[in-house]
Design a protein around this nucleic acid. Structure first.
Lengths: 216, 216
DNA sequence: ATATCAGTGGAACGAAGCATTCCGTTCCAC
DNA sequence: GTGGAACGGAATGCTTCGTTCCACTGATAT
């Protein structure tokens, strides 16, 4: 019987297996974030392991997808709860959206759903996520800063829109998504808060960045 | 030699061929709008014709894609020009965006690009499209109603975001995209124009509409 | 009247991509 | 030293899809 105590170092078969555990989920998250239909082999090669290392851990592609998506959903819940810790309702609302957009949690959950059979636990977590979104929205409304005709269901539109901003460089993508989110929060019309509010973060996409996307 | 004069009616081989011409491009537009990677057979069956009717007209899938995309690009140009007929720069700007979003021209152009080799003429039209977008933006800035830190390149973000709003029912999708666009134009903060501006059009997506998307 | 052939539907073919399995190898744990 | 957990990656079988091919139809020209 293997003795875990002797394998706590950074070398050894057991340690490599542990490292592979996280390397595989990390790779899966990155790969499926980029393309929900990516082949399993892409995950393996990105993780720097063979295919068997992956199939030893998961019953199949669906298992892996489910894992990645459920991780994302759990992260969604914790981010939502943390944002609710904000005193001000409007601050909680903006913080909520910024957290979700920064971590690309919409891509990690909604865009992956449908490619696997959800577990009952996932369904429960998804319902909980809906409740939290409604709660954040209610508090924002109560603060008086959120326009009255904005509904909790509209959050999905915003998240979907931000998730649609895709760039080869993840860092650039995140910055542009922040810019886009800020645009939506502030409004475009100078008769609005833009007149004396903060400027948009980051720079607009350059002509070159934009045109490169016509090739890939 | 065939006599066209005798085939001007709504029946006859020649007339059916003419009807198929448009049936095929119409089907291609609808199908590829929904899924840029859809199989050629899906286009044929949606058009209600066999595969050969399609291959008689186009050298291959790439030709068809190119045609649909170039049509979209030309439509983009005419819509842009028509919106520029507006007197007010801000009106021209909003009208420009509403037209593009209504016709889903972003999906029809950018989302299809990359799946075929563009013709020189297309490249020229694309450049012209960029110029027009820059012009619309400049006029909006001159009108004073567009926030100063908004750049022409940001238009793509908005279009991308609206195009990402997808629903099984095209009519519902268009309405929600309008709602989303209005949201961006008006801004969310009640300290902004939302305080006394018009309400958002349409209803928010219902819980049921939203959750249905988790299955497909 | 009838020969012709543009136009067509759809089966058939072959290539490509992919999930999954299998097998030989490595090297830690005992 | 040895058993076996863990691994890499080739092999397999299946699905999907673009394209070709062929038999058929019926309008047209003579």
């Amino acid at each position: 019987m293997p003795n875990p105590a002797k394998a706590s170092g950074s070398s050894g078969r057991r340690a490599q297996a542990a490292r592979n555990d996280s390397a595989i989920v990390d790779a899966a998250r990155a790969v499926f974030l980029d393309d929900p239909k990516a082949p399993v082999s892409a995950v393996a090669s990105r993780a720097g392991v063979g295919i068997s290392a992956l199939y030893r851990r998961y019953g199949g592609k669906e298992d892996l997808l489910r894992q990645v998506c459920h991780d994302g959903l759990r992260r969604y819940l914790t981010e939502a709860q943390e944002s609710l810790a904000e005193e001000d309702g409007w601050q909680a609302f903006t913080s909520f959206l910024r957290r979700l957009v920064d971590a690309d949690l919409h891509s990690l959950t909604v865009h992956l759903a449908g490619s696997f059979a959800p577990t009952p636990e996932m369904a429960a977590d998804a319902a909980r996520a809906s409740e939290l979104a409604a709660l954040v929205t209610r508090r924002a409304h109560e603060s008086g800063r959120l326009r009255a005709d904005f509904a909790a269901a509209d959050i999905v539109l915003i998240l979907e829109g931000c998730a649609a901003v895709r760039f080869p460089d993840p860092e650039r993508a995140r910055l542009l998504r922040r810019r886009y989110l800020a645009l939506q929060l502030d409004g475009l019309d100078t008769a609005g808060p833009a007149a004396d509010g903060p400027e948009l973060p980051g720079r607009p996409a350059s002509e070159e960045e934009l045109s490169r996307r016509w090739r890939s």
